[in-house]
Design a protein around this nucleic acid. Structure first.
Length: 233
DNA sequence: AAGGGACACAACCGCCCCCGA
DNA sequence: CTCGGGGGCGGTTGTGTCCCT
């Protein structure tokens, strides 16, 4: 049996990152002791240059490995646990607009990492979309021939969308906020500046000018909605 | 109880971009 | 302008766990 470290020893100077090519680095799962060292160092000093973190923190790891461990697992502001229906709907909607730009998508989900979103997409959402007869890449309908081979195993899909039966007022600090209007099962039918948003669509989602999701969490703008309800599309 | 398939999640790889020398 | 290093990102693989047979 060849251990990961043994294999790595042979490969060390051929592959891997340049930042760790000069040092013997450990790979694989992080031990609680390593986690503790990394957390202790970063909370005390900040990460600064990641390439120097392992040395200064007393770790035999690559700087990139430290960065990844911190960002994906050790960061104190991480939200653990299952994705909520709202988070899922945000992922689907943003993915439809941006594609596989996981880091961008993750920015719409405070406390979630790009890796987490990517894993959730690949292990869960992708299958749900396919089961619904939707192409997970384009979000368009798949061909009938393809759909016929897909079992109807996910009657609960599509994900929950916020549905507003009426809108009384919008109060925006930022007039550039965009509303992405939805109509039935169609994709977004257009974007309009919210300041001129006078119709009352039953379903919509909004992004501000920096593409931050407005409806998903603590709103940037003050939005007053009447008769808000959440239901299956 | 054992084994093997499915699944979720952690971690790594390799490429690209940016920035400073 | 060019080059090299650092960091960010998406794709992929590895590993542990659960569940079914």
């Amino acid at each position: 049996m060849v251990s990961c470290d043994d294999m790595q020893e042979g490969l060390e100077n051929k592959t891997g990152h340049q930042c760790c090519s000069k040092r013997k680095v450990k790979r694989g799962l992080w031990s609680p002791d390593e986690d503790e060292k990394l957390v202790k160092y970063i909370t005390t000093h900040g990460h600064g240059s990641w390439s120097s973190v392992p040395k200064l923190a007393g770790l035999q790891r690559c700087g990139k490995s430290c960065r990844l461990r911190w960002i994906n697992y050790l960061r104190p502001d991480l939200k653990r646990g299952s994705f909520t229906a709202l988070e899922e709907s945000i992922i689907v909607e943003v993915h439809r607009m941006l594609g596989n730009r996981w880091a961008q998508i993750a920015k719409h989900l405070p406390g979630r990492t790009d890796n987490e979103v990517k894993n959730f997409w690949n292990s869960c959402i992708k299958k749900k979309l396919i089961a619904q007869g939707l192409d997970p890449k384009t979000h368009n309908l798949l061909s009938n021939n393809y759909k016929h081979n897909i079992p109807d195993t996910n009657p609960s899909y599509p994900p929950l969308l916020h549905k507003f039966s009426s809108i009384s007022t919008f109060e925006y600090q930022n007039p550039n906020t965009q509303a992405f209007l939805e109509s039935g099962s169609n994709s977004s039918i257009g974007t309009v500046p919210v300041s001129s948003f006078t119709s009352r669509p039953s379903e919509f989602s909004m992004l501000d000018e920096s593409c931050m999701w407005v409806g998903g969490y603590e709103p940037i703008q003050s939005i007053k909605l009447e008769n808000e309800q959440t239901e299956q599309q």
